[in-house]
Amino acid sequence: MADFWQGYALPVVITVAEIVAIIVPLLVAIAYLTYAERKVLAWAQLRKGPNVVGPFGLLQPIADGAKLLFKETVIPSGANRVVFLAAPILTFSLSLMAWAVIPFDKGVVLANINVGILYLFAISSLGVYGIVMAGWSSNSKYAFLGALRSAAQMVSYEVSMGFVIVTVLLCAGSLNLTAIVEAQRTIWYAIPLLPMFVVFFISVLAETNRSPFDLPEGESELVAGFFVEYSAMSFALFYLGEYGSMILMSAMTSILFLGGWLAPFNLEPFTGLAAHLWAGFWFALKVALVLFCFLWVRATVPRFRYDQLMRLGWKVFLPFSLFWLVLTAGVLVTTGWLPK
């Protein structure tokens, strides 16, 4: 019995506790990201944003959540019920699943797997299924068109994202996320690989279907795109999934390019053991910075036309990232900086 307790039950309990410790703050972050988005957009447009529920409107996300929870879930009569209900669940759980490999500090990670970056890439490329399944099962033209757009868009931008990731891997010499961050001790990759950083950020916008690439939603032509038929909690899951994958992609950007949990300068209170105290703070700060850029872009850039979107992905980003990949490899080999 003691053997069973030591061998199976205890690890399971510890792992579940770790998962809860990651997911609960994440859900709070998602809720307050919706609030932050409304506030940032409001400031950009010289409005006040939510300011009625609670002090500074801080309870607004909770009020919104409660409202959506108590509404009725309507399933269209021509819809394919199982797929229709599976789609939002898939979207939401995928955006949570990826956090298993995100390191918050050296050793502070749920699963420190050797191929962490591939895992993140795999999970982010699965996000398209939630959208395609939703669009198809709704049995509605608008939803279907949104889903088709999204499938083409996400597959296109994944290609250049893959090349950017390979460039970072060449510099870091490992697929392990912790090792990638540790490899940035001398310099954050955002500096030597600045063009790739920009390409990656724009591809991430397309991958998460955020503006200016939010054609799958395209409310001016497609009503609300792929989730036009969704209501109440099934809609909320899509909504939360979108914000969850935004936070995830920001975390990925900060790990690949902004040095993850590393402090920006090697000064007194941030060195030695104290560095571990600050690790979470720096990581959160970087994620928040990238997230702010997401919102900033939404407030300022108009939506792309579909052919422009495809042109940018295939004719600009793909050749450019391929060129930079070859250039980086060449520089690393000739200067002998290639990691062993």
Binding site: V132, L148, V155
Partner: peptide, 26 residues
């Protein structure tokens, strides 16, 4: 074989099957 597993997910599930689904739906 964790590398093969993830490549299977990225290539087949993430790209090939999406295009497959795309065509079958249309």
């Amino acid at each position: 074989a964790e590398f093969l597993a993830l490549i299977l997910v990225i290539v087949y599930v993430g790209a090939v099957a999406v295009l497959f689904l795309f065509v079958v739906m249309m």
